[in-house]
């Protein structure tokens, strides 16, 4: 792995075998590779269903990587997500790599402010500081203070997504994965989120993003990776 990069994806492929459905095998892509340096903001592009979310999830360790390597610089060392002990990946997710998915996984009895604070607390940030960050982000994302003590379970899709984003940005990561961060947001909030991403990028965070919104993509990304070239054609 080259000294300056934070992420090095090498020749990875992905397929799914559905045992419950007669062992059907779905090949998604093959031969995917790229590197990412601090301050890079890479857009994953390609038509819907091509495997952009799948690729992101593989980098996060949420999906298995059957071949190739996914190297993340963690604590100065390159760690291969594809073969690392789960214990290591948990540490990488805590300190080095953040992920904002499309959907907030809601636990009905945890208050919004606690949901947002949790990743920062896991990094060892003091409670007062974590809370302060959470409050700033929630305010920026226009979640009314009256809702901070409530669980997000009753929030609208857009509100949940903003809570999700606040949670993603409350902790500081060298590498961030953002899956459709501006989907289901109105124009004001979209602007805010774009500013937040840009600020993180300017601070040296490396970002991979999936953006449906071409405008957003143009505003923050300085690189592009089109997955179409690597998709495996259906047999």
């Amino acid at each position: 792995m080259n000294g300056g990069s934070i992420l090095d994806v090498r020749d990875i492929a992905k397929d799914f075998t559905l045992h419950a459905q007669g062992g059907t095998r779905l090949a998604v892509f093959a031969g995917v590779g790229f590197t990412l340096a601090p301050g890079d903001c890479l857009a994953l592009s390609g038509p819907s269903g091509i495997g952009k979310s799948t690729l992101m999830r593989m980098i996060y360790g949420n999906f298995r990587c059957p071949s190739g390597e996914i190297l993340v610089r963690h604590g100065g060392e390159p760690i291969d997500i594809a073969s690392a002990h789960p214990h290591r990946i948990l540490d990488i997710r805590r300190a080095t790599m953040g992920y904002v998915s499309q959907f907030l996984r809601v636990i009905p009895r945890v208050a919004t402010i606690d949901v947002v604070m949790e990743p920062a607390l896991a990094q060892g940030i003091a409670v007062a500081e974590a809370r302060a960050r959470a409050e700033v982000l929630l305010a920026q994302l226009r979640i009314p203070e009256s809702l901070w003590g409530l669980s997000p379970v009753t929030f609208s899709g857009g509100e949940q997504q903003r809570v999700n984003l606040a949670r993603g940005f409350a902790a500081r990561y060298p590498l961030m994965l953002l899956d459709e961060p501006t989907a289901s947001l109105d124009s004001d909030n979209r602007e805010t989120v774009i500013d937040m991403i840009r600020a993180a990028r300017d601070h040296g965070t490396a970002i991979i993003g999936i953006f449906h919104d071409a405008d957003a993509r143009a505003n923050v990304c300085n690189r592009d990776f089109n997955l179409s070239a690597y998709a495996v054609k259906a047999a």
Binding site: F16, T17, H19, A20, R57, G61, N62, F63, R64, P86, I89, L90
Partner: peptide, 15 residues
Amino acid sequence: ETGLTDQVLDDPQHP
């Protein structure tokens, strides 16, 4: 099968 919880539940490998 063994692995991260989210991985085993989101991308289970074994039948």
